[in-house]
């Protein structure tokens, strides 16, 4: 599995498309608490963790229970860890869940890339 992380609008998906020759049909865009792991690339995992945080679901446990399905996938998640502690409990819970998810996926990944202004920094 390849994990691609970075701040908003940094070009994570563009990097994934050009590096792994992805077609639109290869990409699943998270919008809620379910992921279609049949696609090669899962984008916007931070929207999945947001839905999990709001509904009290453990995102890490979800990934662990579907491990066989994403072992060869390209996973993309926004880094939301670097601001002031959010005022809202929902946002704090989201930030925590997203951070724990990135750490878990990072540990499992064969390659971790951080994208900064469209450029790759290889972390693993």
């Amino acid at each position: 599995m390849v994990l691609i992380i970075g701040g908003a609008y940094q070009g994570k998906l563009d990097f994934a498309k050009s590096t792994f020759d992805l077609k639109p049909a290869d990409i699943f865009t998270c919008t809620g608490g379910e992921i279609d792991f049949s696609r090669r690339c899962i984008d916007h995992i931070e929207e999945f963790t947001y839905a999990c945080a709001r509904s009290g679901v453990d995102a890490v446990a979800y990934f662990q229970s579907h491990r066989e399905q994403w072992r060869d996938s390209i996973l993309i998640c926004r880094d939301i860890s670097a601001g002031v502690v959010p005022m809202g409990a929902d946002m704090r819970s989201w930030r925590q869940m997203n951070g724990l998810t990135c750490r878990y996926l990072s540990g499992e990944a064969a390659r971790v890339s951080r994208i900064f202004c469209g450029l790759e920094e290889r972390l693993k």
């Binding site: 908003a8 070009g11 959010p86």
Partner: peptide, 27 residues
């Protein structure tokens, strides 16, 4: 670009626009 906020439309447009400029400059 790396905080846990959900901004209003104008702020999000500003962030997205600045990231676009950053990427042009970086290239």
């Amino acid at each position: 670009y790396a905080d846990a906020q959900r901004y209003d439309e104008i702020t999000e447009l500003y962030r997205k626009s600045l990231a676009g400029i950053d990427r042009c400059l970086a290239a």
